[in-house]
């Protein structure tokens, strides 16, 4: 081995044993800077996202959209934008919404999402028809346990599963209840989850009652769920923040085409610049790590 080979090998060796906090710092900067100085890129919806969007958009008018908040605060960064986008889509098209949670920690997130989106629409509303009203246009059934009680019971009678809604109001007394009695009145249940709950919806609700299931999932689980998309058990799927961004884009295009005055903040789309930069940084890290590995291995040989 020549002296220059040794020097080169030493450099790569040191680079491989660099304090991991330098890696942390690079990741922090790579994600932060594009958030402050974004490069506007329009996401294009992939088939799993556009399938879900089109189904919800075109399902019969009287069918409600059910959103199951099956995620908890730890994955809310990825999944919460999906809930917001789905609620906006439903409210913008005048569709009734029923929201529930199979996770106790999902309740607060569902409440936040409904409060935010309802106020976005109500701020612009000029008539009663334009407004989005709790108990009339949407209902937050809340949470119950165990999950199979919810999934099977909703196919029979929803008010038996949720005698009171999240706010403690008797569900039988709500004006929306005669329109959403059980799965027959629901077009699709979209389960947004960081766990395998969407599969439980398929196993319990779909197998027994034939209800359509849509899935919003963390990117970690998304690759595993393609097999359920392929079999048609999931009508569509939003995979991670990217899936949420694509749904936001489809909705923005639809609202723009309809000349809607709504201008809504799109958090997932805003994140795409950082996501791009971070992916490139990770790839660079892996490439550098591998070059170092092969150079030092050759040096040792």
């Amino acid at each position: 081995m020549t002296a220059s080979d040794k020097t080169r090998s030493g450099f790569w060796d040191r680079l491989q044993r660099i304090d991991r906090r330098w890696v942390f710092l690079v990741i922090w900067l790579v994600v932060m800077l594009p958030l402050i100085f974004p490069f506007g890129i329009k996401p294009k919806a992939m088939p799993p996202v556009s399938r879900l969007f089109s189904y919800i958009d075109t399902m019969p008018e009287e069918k409600a959209l059910a959103i199951s908040i099956d995620y908890t605060p730890d994955t809310q960064a990825e999944l919460h934008p999906m809930t917001i986008a789905l609620l906006r889509h439903a409210f913008a098209t005048g569709r009734r919404v029923g929201m529930l949670s199979t996770q106790v920690y999902g309740l607060g997130l569902g409440e936040e999402a409904l409060r935010q989106v309802a106020s976005e629409f109500n701020e612009k509303a000029t008539t009663h028809e334009d407004s989005v009203i709790n108990g009339e246009d949407y209902v937050f059934w809340g949470w119950s346990t165990p999950f199979l009680t919810v999934m099977l019971g909703m196919g029979e009678r929803i008010t038996n599963v949720f005698p009171v809604d999240y706010y403690g109001v008797t569900t039988e007394s709500l004006p929306i209840t005669p329109h959403i009695k059980n799965f027959n009145d629901i077009g699709i249940v979209v389960s947004i989850a960081g766990s395998s709950t969407p599969l439980s919806w398929v196993a319990y609700a779909q197998t027994q009652f034939g209800i359509r299931i849509g899935c919003g999932t963390t990117a970690v689980s998304a690759a595993d769920y393609y097999t359920y998309l392929n079999s048609g058990q999931f009508t569509g799927m939003l995979a991670g923040m990217r899936g949420a961004a694509e749904y936001e884009q489809l909705l923005a295009d639809k609202l723009a085409a309809a000349g809607s005055p709504l201008s809504l903040r799109r958090k997932a789309t805003e994140a795409m610049s950082s996501q791009t930069a971070a992916h490139l940084a990770i790839i660079v890290f892996i490439v550098i790590g591998n070059i170092g590995y092969f150079v030092t291995r050759r040096g040792k040989q």
């Binding site: 890696v23 990770i282 790590g289 591998n290």
Partner: peptide, 13 residues
């Protein structure tokens, strides 16, 4: 995110 980046850099060969 940070631990994954660090692990990818050090171990993904």
């Amino acid at each position: 995110a940070f631990f994954m980046a660090s692990a990818a850099y050090r171990a993904f060969r």
